[in-house]
């Protein structure tokens, strides 16, 4: 059995609500939640001008490389990364050792405020993802793709 990461409607609603609130409370431009394999889970705020797929992949790569560095130094992980730009800044943190929370903010906010709000949002998100994992482990969640046929797969390429 392969592991699958399945997000249901209720989880998605809760996750998006936390991201929306964080965007507001931290006065951020946008917030992204990314899984450690580089897939975008949710986003909030001004995301129209951003290539969110690339952002997710590069963030995961960044976290993976930093995690590699941490282990080299005997650390478990570096749980927070901060990139400062001329205009925009990037605050990246790991939530519940599972997912990556990315906050983009400019001079209308501050690193202190972002850190403070991220801490609270992380606790809420950790709860969601821990529940999600417990439920997945307990039920062994059936794949929504269990019913697809070879023909369905072949049709993708026609």
């Amino acid at each position: 059995m392969i592991q699958q990461f399945v997000i249901h409607e209720e989880d998605y609603r809760r996750i998006t609500a936390v991201c929306d609130r964080l965007t507001r409370d931290a006065n951020a431009k946008s917030v992204f939640l990314v899984d450690k394999n580089g897939q975008l889970i949710a986003s909030s705020g001004a995301t129209d001008h951003i290539d969110t797929t690339s952002l997710a992949s590069l963030t995961a790569g960044n976290i993976a490389a930093t995690g590699g560095l941490a282990r080299l130094l005997g650390e478990k992980e570096f749980s927070i990364l901060f990139h400062e730009g001329e205009r925009d800044n990037l605050h990246i943190s790991i939530v519940a050792q599972k997912v990556i929370l990315v906050v983009i903010f400019d001079s209308r906010s501050s690193l202190g405020l972002v850190r403070l709000r991220v801490k609270k949002a992380s606790e809420e998100l950790a709860q969601v993802f821990n529940e999600l994992q417990r439920r997945g482990d307990a039920m062994g969640l059936p794949s929504p793709f269990a019913e697809i046929t070879d023909e369905d797969i072949d049709n993708l390429f026609n």
Partner: peptide
């Protein structure tokens, strides 16, 4: 690990 987003009806591998 395939990522399946049911509300958005998306699977990413």
């Amino acid at each position: 690990m395939p990522f399946i987003n049911l509300p958005l009806r998306e699977i990413t591998c």
